[in-house]
Design a protein around this nucleic acid. Structure first.
Lengths: 153, 153
DNA sequence: CGAGTAGTTGAAGTTAACTTCACATTCGCC
DNA sequence: GGCGAATGTGAAGTTAACTTCAACTACTCG
């Protein structure tokens, strides 16, 4: 196996050396040391770093990634099964994220259609119905919507 | 016009009083003061806060929101035109975000199909082609993919 | 062998968006 | 008038994910 210096990993992965050291403190990657105490990374580290970046794109935190990467060997290429497991779960996550945004967009579109200035059912502007307390159901979270509502407080 | 205390705005909007004070320091909302130096918010503040939360959902930073809200009056309900302007631009932004995630998902799906252990064209694992430097085109960002690649450095 | 580039460490700094704290003042209500 | 809840302020704390710094040490190349 050949080893890469931190600078090589950095330029080949597009990740700063400071970030790589940071990842190492977090246990996301690992290295051996030379006699002179310099880090030497196994080649598979490039793939690990790529996985980290991809995972971040998908919205995972480094802590979550550390957990996911725990199951992969530090010093050799992950198997196709390893990769499939990760990519499938990440895709699931992506899909959930997409669904959430699409829902938000649709609501926003509805709002545009109605003006949303007094819409009781607007989900965006009535998130979880945190308002009120008067027990009269959804409040006009966007504030006063003329007389009718102004009279409720 | 009637005024709301910070506590009222907080409970009706679902946003903590500390956050409201924070928003105020950032110029996102504004208040008048009573003789005793307590804040009193105009009713339209509820709508402003709702807009802020909605904007954040869409991925806007408070700084960006401050800019967008600058065009709205602090003390009265925004017009339908104001709201349409904002919601349209936010929807555009949402759609861009969605498109990005969908693209990522599709790439991930392709990767799952191929195993992605040696795929040259994998966009996820070859982001912007930061790798190489050897001028041989896309490198195997994921690291070594057996002999063939191991021989390239 | 000497210069210059690359790498090492721990600590502190950065940004966003708030929260928490400590302590003083004010409000609303009986 | 008095009491407890609500507010006010500025400063410091929080979390994530890094970056920057200072002071060294190690490599690499001519």
């Amino acid at each position: 196996m050949d080893w890469l210096t931190i600078g090589e990993v950095a330029s080949r992965s597009g990740v700063a050396t400071s970030a790589l050291r940071f990842y190492e403190t977090k246990g996301l990657i690992a290295s051996e040391r030379t006699d002179g105490n310099q880090r030497r990374y196994p080649r598979a580290t490039l793939r690990r770093v790529a996985l980290i970046r991809a995972g971040q794109e998908v919205g995972l935190s480094l802590a979550e990634l550390a957990e996911a990467l725990e199951t992969l060997p530090h010093d050799k290429t992950p198997t196709k099964a390893d990769w499939e497991r990760l990519s499938r779960s990440w895709r699931t996550r992506l899909e959930a994220q997409i669904a959430e945004l699409v829902g938000l967009r649709d609501e926003l579109t509805d709002c545009i259609g109605c003006g949303c200035l007094s819409l009781k059912s607007c989900a965006i502007f009535n998130p979880g119905d945190a308002a009120s307390g008067l027990g009269t159901g959804p409040r006009y979270l966007l504030g006063d919507s003329r007389e009718a509502v102004a009279a409720d407080s």
